[in-house]
Design a protein around this nucleic acid. Structure first.
Length: 417
RNA sequence: GUGGAUGUAGCUCAGUUGGCAGAGCGCCAGGUUGUGGCCCUGGGUGUCGCGGGUUCGAGCCCCGUCAUCCACCCCA
């Protein structure tokens, strides 16, 4: 049980029933909904050139600096397991993959980050993400958020909170940095060690530090929008106005900062109180990046499936397991019937009936136990006596009553609802 | 990468100041010579995560190691 050889690699999990049913339901709900919004699925490689992520996500980010799984392939190329989904999709778009200028794409699958595992954080984790390409537009951002909220609700999640902020445009950068530095200028000694370093490297990061002293200092700063140009402020106000129109509850959090370099304008995060320390169930934002000489812009989000499922479970959402129960269990009262019953088993399945059978030659009693355990509504029993008369026993597993009938009637009864 | 906690049966976990390794659930068989659930009876050698050390004696104490969980950090 604790044999290290048999454990999955650290932070990676084997997934099966019963949790898998919840995953499958979420995935099905997502596919249905995304089609309704006009998104098409794209599946990109799990392994990409490491340089792709460096360029797209940013050299200085934690994800690139210390969380990527790096490896050399047979040709000596520096490769990385994808730590997120946007970069791969953008590579595909930049390579001419999409024939539409304003492609609407979605993906779902595993991502990899070599972090220390904890509640809601795996080294292999799974995301459902969307990318809506197109020029900056408050309406596009609002639609994207509306879709994400819709998706979470359709999956059965309640009680989540949406926080939103703006990064402005790259041109705002210098004045935002200057504003923060000026605001914090005299009080850098009141900040934690990390924040004093951040102040030099990435001052925005000081805003979302969790150390209480830093918080207190950061709280005295005006919202970052104060340091942005008129255009950025108007853009953000319009996003807020549209979300209000759409009746989507949202809190403006001036301290919300997102880690990846490609974000511009609107950024947001959805948290859930049932989750513990890693409480962001989903996040998103508008982004802009240069890839292969092309400038790509769009808005997108990702939902963390582990976290979504965790939150659903804590809220008592249970998958419906009746869907995987067989309708009928076939029982051979003596081994000589096995061949005929196997034929019946396949005939029923080909007619759409979920059917099961013990194939190991166990006792009648053991087969009946298996029928009960599988949750079958009916059992079909046949031994030498029935075979001789050309009939079958059909037993109702909940009432315990049973009837004798021929093959035609048996099949008819089992096909009926 | 840093810190704290935890590793005992298939699962969940007891195990006293170091002194014969246990319970519940599950599973298998029987009670029912061709019938499940409920009930009764029977069925446990399990590298006490692994490797060292201390001791007459270690599941328990010490060191190391691996793994898991939680938190920092970061993010979905």
């Amino acid at each position: 049980m604790s044999d290290a050889e048999l454990q999955p690699p650290p932070g990676m999990a084997d997934l099966c029933a019963p949790e898998i049913f919840l995953w499958q339901r979420v995935e099905e709900v997502a596919r249905q909904l995304l089609v309704r919004y006009g998104f098409l699925e794209v599946r990109t490689p799990l392994l990409e050139r490491a340089s792709l992520f460096v360029r797209a996500i940013g050299e200085a980010t934690d994800v690139v600096q210390k969380e990527m799984y790096l490896l050399q392939d047979r040709g000596g190329r520096e490769m990385a397991l994808r730590p997120e989904g946007t970069a791969g999709v953008m590579r595909w778009v930049a390579s001419g993959g999409s024939d539409r200028a304003e492609a609407r794409l979605y993906y779902m699958g595993p991502m990899f980050r070599a972090e220390r595992p904890q509640a809601g954080r795996r080294r292999q984790f799974h995301q459902i993400g969307v990318e809506a390409l197109g020029p900056a537009s408050p309406a596009a951002d609002a639609e994207c958020i509306a879709l994400q909220v819709h998706l979470l609700q359709a999956a059965g999640l309640e009680g989540f909170a949406l926080r939103i902020n703006t990064r402005g445009v790259p041109a705002d950068g210098p004045s935002v940095v200057a504003g923060i530095r000026t605001g914090l200028g005299g009080r850098s000694d009141a900040l934690c060690e990390d924040c004093r370093r951040r102040l030099a490297v990435n001052p925005l990061r000081v805003l979302d530090c969790k150390v209480p002293q830093c918080r207190a200092v950061a709280d005295t700063l005006p919202p970052v929008t104060e340091f942005m140009g008129e255009g950025s402020r108007r853009y953000f106000d319009e996003v807020l106005r549209l979300l209000h129109l759409l009746d989507i509850p949202v809190a403006h959090d001036p301290r919300l900062v997102r880690g990846l370099d490609y974000y511009v304008h609107t950024i947001w995060e959805i948290t859930h109180p049932a989750l513990g320390a890693q409480d962001a169930v989903a996040g998103g934002g508008r982004y802009r990046m240069q890839l292969g000489g092309r400038e790509l812009e769009g808005v997108g989000f990702a939902i963390g499936l582990e976290r979504l499922v965790l939150a659903l479970q804590k809220y008592g959402v249970r998958p419906d397991e009746s869907a995987v129960r067989p309708r009928v269990w076939i029982v051979a009262a003596d081994a000589a019937q096995m061949g005929d019953l196997l034929v019946l088993l396949q005939a029923l399945r080909r007619r759409g009936v979920a059917a099961g059978m013990d194939l190991a030659g166990r006792s009648l009693k053991a087969q009946m136990r298996a029928a009960n355990r599988a949750g079958a509504a009916w059992a079909v029993i046949r031994g030498a006596a029935e075979a001789e008369k050309g009939v079958f026993i059909l037993k109702n597993m909940s009432t315990g009553t049973q009837e004798v009938m021929d093959l035609a009637e048996l099949v008819q009864r089992l096909i009926e609802p």
